[in-house]
C-alpha cells in the first residue's frame, strides 16, 4: 500500500513538473536574438485602427499647437452635424473612436483630415462655401481621405518596419519611455503624416480618388453631388496658389474636368434651398 501511495505521489510530482514547465520556455539570450528576426517577419502586420487613432491624435495636437479652435459652439455643432451626415454614408462609417469635426479660427482656406477621424475645416473654408451642400462636399472629401487611409499610409514603410522590429524584441517595454526608440519612431511617423496632410499635400491620385468617393457619398447622403464641382470651380476662380487648400488640394483643370464629368454642378432644388438657408443662418 505504501508503495502505491509513493508511486502516486511521484506521479503527481512528475505531472506537476511537466505542467509547470509547459507555460514557460527558458532559453538563452543568444537563442532569442537568433529567433527575433524571423519572428518579426512572420508576424508583420499593417498599422491597426487603434494605432491609427493615436497617430491621428498626435497630428491633431500638433496642428492645434499653432492654430486656434473656433469657440463658436453653434458653428461647431453645425459643422459636426453636416460632417456626421456624410461620414455615416461614406465607405468607412466607423473608425476606432468615430469622427469628430472642428473649426479652426483662421481666414486661411483649408481643411485637414487626421488619421482616425479628426477633421479640421477653417473658418475661411466655411466662408468660401456658398451652401451647406458645398460644405458637405469639403467634409465628404476629407472623410474619404480618412476612409482611404491616405494620411496613415504616408508613414514610410521603412519606419513602420523599424517599429515592428522594435516591438518584436523581448525588451520592448524599455523602448516606450520618453527617450525610447518607440517614441522616436512615433515622432517620425507624426512627421511623415503631418508633412503629407499639411505641408506637401496628397498625391494627385489620392485626391482624385477622394473626389470620386466624395461624390458618391454626397449622392448617398442626399446632398447635391454637383456641389464639389461648384466649389472647386469657385476655388480655381480665386486663383490663389502656394498656400491653404490650393497647396494641399490642387484643383487643377484636369481634376475639375473629371469631377464635372462625374457630377456636374446643377440647379438647386427646393430642399437644397432650405439647407442653404440654414447654412446662412450660422454666424461666421
Amino acid at each position: 500500500m505504501r508503495r502505491l501511495i509513493l508511486f502516486g505521489v511521484c506521479l503527481a510530482a512528475a505531472l506537476g513538473l511537466i505542467w509547470g514547465c509547459a507555460g514557460m520556455d527558458y532559453t538563452s539570450v543568444a537563442t532569442i536574438a537568433l529567433k527575433t528576426a524571423p519572428k518579426v517577419a512572420a508576424a508583420s502586420r499593417e498599422i491597426n485602427d487603434s494605432e491609427e487613432y493615436y497617430v491621428g491624435r498626435a497630428v491633431a495636437a500638433r496642428i492645434l499647437g499653432t492654430s486656434r479652435l473656433a469657440t463658436d459652439q453653434q458653428l461647431t455643432l453645425y459643422v459636426n452635424e453636416v460632417g456626421q451626415t456624410v461620414a455615416r454614408k461614406s465607405t468607412r462609417p466607423n473608425t476606432f473612436k468615430g469622427y469628430n469635426f472642428a473649426v479652426l479660427d483662421t481666414t486661411e482656406v483649408n481643411a485637414f483630415a487626421c488619421p482616425g477621424g479628426i477633421i479640421f475645416v477653417t473658418k475661411g473654408m466655411v466662408q468660401t462655401c456658398a451652401s451647406e451642400d458645398e460644405l458637405a462636399a469639403v467634409l465628404a472629401h476629407e472623410v474619404a481621405h480618412v476612409a482611404n487611409k491616405d494620411g496613415i499610409n504616408s508613414i514610410s514603410k521603412a519606419r513602420w518596419t523599424e517599429v515592428l522590429t522594435t516591438i518584436g524584441t523581448e525588451t520592448a517595454k524599455q523602448y516606450a519611455g520618453p527617450g525610447g526608440q518607440l517614441v522616436t519612431l512615433f515622432e517620425g511617423s507624426i512627421d511623415d503624416v503631418f508633412k503629407t496632410i499639411v505641408v506637401n499635400g496628397y498625391s494627385r491620385g489620392a485626391e482624385e480618388a477622394a473626389d470620386t468617393q466624395a461624390i458618391t457619398t454626397l449622392r448617398n447622403a442626399g446632398y447635391d453631388p454637383g456641389a464639389l464641382a461648384s466649389l472647386l470651380n469657385k476655388m480655381m476662380a480665386k486663383g490663389e496658389t502656394g498656400a491653404g487648400i490650393f497647396k494641399t488640394h490642387p484643383p487643377t483643370a484636369d481634376r475639375l474636368a473629371k469631377v464635372k464629368a462625374t457630377a456636374p454642378a446643377g440647379t438647386p432644388d427646393k430642399m437644397e434651398e432650405v439647407r442653404t438657408k440654414r447654412f446662412k443662418s450660422v454666424k461666421l
Binding site: 498626435a58 516606450a176 517614441v183 512615433f186
Partner: peptide
C-alpha cells in the same frame, strides 16, 4: 509580441512629455 505593443497610450504619454 507585436500586437500588444506598438503605438499605445503609453507611447502617447511619453510623446506628450517630450513634446
Amino acid at each position: 509580441a507585436l500586437a500588444g505593443k506598438g503605438f499605445t497610450p503609453e507611447v502617447e504619454a511619453s510623446y506628450r512629455q517630450k513634446n
